[in-house]
Design a protein around this nucleic acid. Structure first.
Lengths: 164, 164
DNA sequence: TATTGTTATACTCTATAACTATA
DNA sequence: TATAGTTATAGAGTATAACAATA
């Protein structure tokens, strides 16, 4: 049986849409890497949001715990700079972690303007759980890419971000 | 003279930060392609916004004109689907183009629910100007990548988007 | 004078629901 | 009943400015 086709505004065309009005997106992303990048990120972000929905930490909170675990106590300013999260957003992020008992805002010993955001003992298992979920999250978001392609993607993004 | 260093919360460390509290972002994007992708897109989007600031068309309006020019009159629904722009956003996009006299909302001959969004003669030079700016725009956004790397990026984004 | 944390505001994107007119 | 266009609203993310405490 014929699949229900949406009405077409131009020639019904004998061939199966050989100009590609119904595949125009494909053409677009092949000639505009900027559009392709933005649309792909929208898709990846949606997958991430779904994946994080049932978990205890937001992505930002996860990254904060990870950085504190990796480098030790930090000021909110340092966390903001390195994680590329605005300091006005970082406030609420740390609020949530403090309410959950995962970090404490201690005073910086030599600069009383800044906090020394510090992990509590309760943070370790929560961070471990979040880290354990990362591979599955990446598999959902980048399932279409091989391991080598993911490494290539990482390298290209690194160049755009001017790191490494 | 010594550059003014921000106060550090942990060991002043003899080596130049060999754990990398000041380069943590670099470490992060190398192990998290999802974060790298999102941060790179933020950067690219900022460049695009700056580039488009002084121009007559928004990115969405540019893409609409381009698609109409490539495939002929379309319904707003078709434009929304192929350009991945929500139909509620497409309304204002077409409004702007109509106010500028670049498109007309004609009635679809066989479906009076839909419009046949149609280019006016005034559209051609405006589209041509916008298209002419694309290479420069891409050079600014992806200046860190070689031509081959841009093609690779396009291919990877295509796989994520499941096109091509 | 500059910086840290904080609050407030604004603007864009995205998502959703509802409504109308048509089919 | 389903779809096309429209409007309104709500939520994230980002950007900005201002303020108090401190340097």
């Amino acid at each position: 049986m014929a699949a229900p086709q949406p009405a077409r505004l131009t020639s019904p065309s004998r061939e199966p849409e050989a100009g590609g009005r119904d595949r125009y997106f494909s053409k677009l992303v092949q000639e505009r890497p900027d559009i392709a990048l933005c649309r792909a990120t929208t898709l990846v972000t949606r997958t991430l949001d779904e994946e994080l929905a049932g978990r205890r930490l937001t992505m930002a909170q996860h990254l904060v715990l990870k950085m504190l675990s990796d480098v030790g106590p930090c000021s909110q300013q340092e966390l903001s700079e390195q994680l590329r999260i605005d300091r006005s957003v970082m406030v609420g992020c740390i609020d949530g972690l403090e309410d959950s008992g995962l970090v404490r805002r201690e005073r910086h010993p030599r600069d009383r303007r800044a906090y020394a955001v510090t992990l509590t003992p309760e943070a370790a298992p929560v961070l471990e759980e979040a880290e354990g979920g990362v591979p599955h999250l990446l598999d959902r978001a980048f399932g279409a890419l091989t391991a080598a392609e993911r490494r290539t993607l990482t390298r290209l993004m690194g160049k755009i971000l001017d790191v490494g």
